[in-house]
Design a protein around this nucleic acid. Structure first.
Lengths: 198, 198
DNA sequence: GTCATCATGTAAGCCGTTACATGATTGC
DNA sequence: GCAATCATGTAACGGCTTACATGATGAC
């Protein structure tokens, strides 16, 4: 079973709050970065797939968690005001708001637990891992650590075997990559440690 | 003009030495990492495209720079020996060895100079940037730096605006990402500095 | 009233992976 | 001889991006 990035991202975001497609797109961009964020052309069909599969369902527009800009002051009041105005003044009828179903929650847990993770899925899984069992979470972190250790040693091996033929730019690139990987491993070690003590 | 990753990688590698497809694939894997390394299904057609476009040409098999394992000692002799043995003993006739043409070199310079670079093309451009003018190289580094600075501020902005709604995992992820980006910027600063002093 | 943004969707086309097909060479 | 690796290709399939199409809302 291959983990679909879009599916994982949508289910993870809907697990936190109900959202409509357009808003979903913005959140997707926030957590996945400007690059690798999905386009409408794949988001809407993905939502339709998930809906027909029973993982998400359309809900009442009034249930939406609205987007309120971070004005800083009176956040609560501003939010309430905007939520109210939207319901009355703004056409929510043309927005299709989705919520996750029980089946969707089960699917999300399954996706996070799936052992095949890579550069794209790992950050998403980690971002949503509060929705899974502690041991699944620990497994995720440890698997990722093992991958990075492997990557680090492969990188170093490559560097040693080409040593004298490396120009300064390639060398700098490879060294920087190794250092980054080392720091990623140290970061994971901290997370794993925290996970174990709680 | 969109920069094709495969095209850039092939031309960059062939600029250093003549290679056949299979070997090219291995080198590609070394510089691009196991992930994002191209498959045969896209490598061979790409070579054909480049050949019909006149950027690369098939050369005599005897001209091949052979792959010699890094035994460490007597590298030169080992290389000569293997090159000789291959020509005689090994069926080089079924290997199609490619070399870069003058047109290909021009194209490579053009690709590296192209201002549209991203996560995928930047490492490749840097790896091959010794083949371009110093000012082009400096531009590449500075453009990349500007991108990372933008990314860093966007990340921080996102973090601040969601501050209280972040669970520990998302927070850790975002903080780690910011730190990584900061280090990448510092690394680029060192490269830029070196570039200016030489 | 007009422009930017919000909001949802469809369709075509590109590009890359996967799978398939073939055969030589080398080590055991 | 047999398996693993080397070596080169083709074809189908799938998924994602781009572009297109449409319309409401809000700010100035």
């Amino acid at each position: 079973m291959l983990v679909d990035v879009i599916e994982l991202a949508i289910l993870g975001l809907l697990r936190e709050s109900e959202l409509h497609g357009y808003e979903l797109k913005k959140r997707l961009r926030e957590i996945m970065g400007p690059l690798s964020s999905v386009s409408f052309g794949s988001l809407y069909p993905a939502l339709q797939r998930l809906e027909s599969g029973g993982q998400v369902k359309a809900v009442e527009a009034a249930d939406v968690a609205p987007t309120f800009p971070s004005t800083g002051s009176f956040a609560g009041e501003a939010a309430a005001f905007r939520a109210a105005t939207r319901r009355v003044m703004r056409g929510t009828r043309n927005r299709k708001v989705y919520g996750i179903t029980e089946q969707g929650e089960a699917r999300l847990a399954e996706l996070i637990a799936d052992p095949s993770d890579d550069e794209r899925t790992f950050p998403l899984k980690l971002a949503f891992c509060r929705w899974c069992e502690p041991e699944v979470r620990l497994g995720l972190l440890q698997r990722r650590r093992a991958q990075l250790v492997e990557r680090l040693s492969e990188g170093r091996r490559n560097m040693r075997s080409r040593e004298e033929r490396l120009d300064r730019y390639v060398r700098s690139l490879m060294e920087h990559d190794s250092e980054s990987t080392e720091r990623d491993i140290a970061w994971l070690d901290r997370l794993i440690e925290e996970e174990k003590t709680s």
